[in-house]
Amino acid sequence: MMGRTIFIDPGRCIGCQACVSACRECDSHRGKSMIHLDYPDEGHSVASLPTVCMHCEDPVAPCAEVCPADAILVTADGVVQQADTTRCIGCANCVNACPFGVPKIDLQAKLQMKCNLCYDRTAYGLAPMCATVCPTGALFYGTLEELQAERPGVQVADSFTFGTTTVTTGVAMVVPADKVQWPVPGGLPVVEINGRDVR
């Protein structure tokens, strides 16, 4: 069950990159931003999508499962931590296995880095950097009850489909009320690439 977590509402995102800048200030990866801000339909739409680690719960952390060095720890509170610097061998298994495209890798340093929900802050009850600075509330940190108290009638989903697999996550996305009973499509199977049907 969802506890205190991040709720992402892409409909509110204005692509201002405040979250990207704030993420760099996180103590556990100072100077490097771990949040991704993508423009899915660049040139045709102003739509933007912030992506933080979704902290997959079922299957639990695919990044950690494929790691050959047991470098990725999932703490008891469900937070998927970034790679242990002593163990990570920089193989990039996690980078390429993550269904959400979250982890980053520094090939020179042989080290994976990813969003860890600003563990230095959230462990003490503070909101992550990205949610703290987001001017539109596209990134909200709190409980579902707190979100619904602030935004009456809002619905969220915490499961995503990738082909035949459904991934349940610790981080949730805001969805329209009529879509809440279905998992959110994760983009796989890919039906079209650059206007070409690839089914």
Binding site: D41, V184, P185
Partner: peptide, 17 residues
């Protein structure tokens, strides 16, 4: 990784909201 995110964004755009 970037294309995974963009494709997921497109799917959200087309089918969810």
């Amino acid at each position: 990784p970037r294309c995974k995110r963009v494709l997921r964004g497109n799917a959200y755009l087309d089918h969810v909201k």
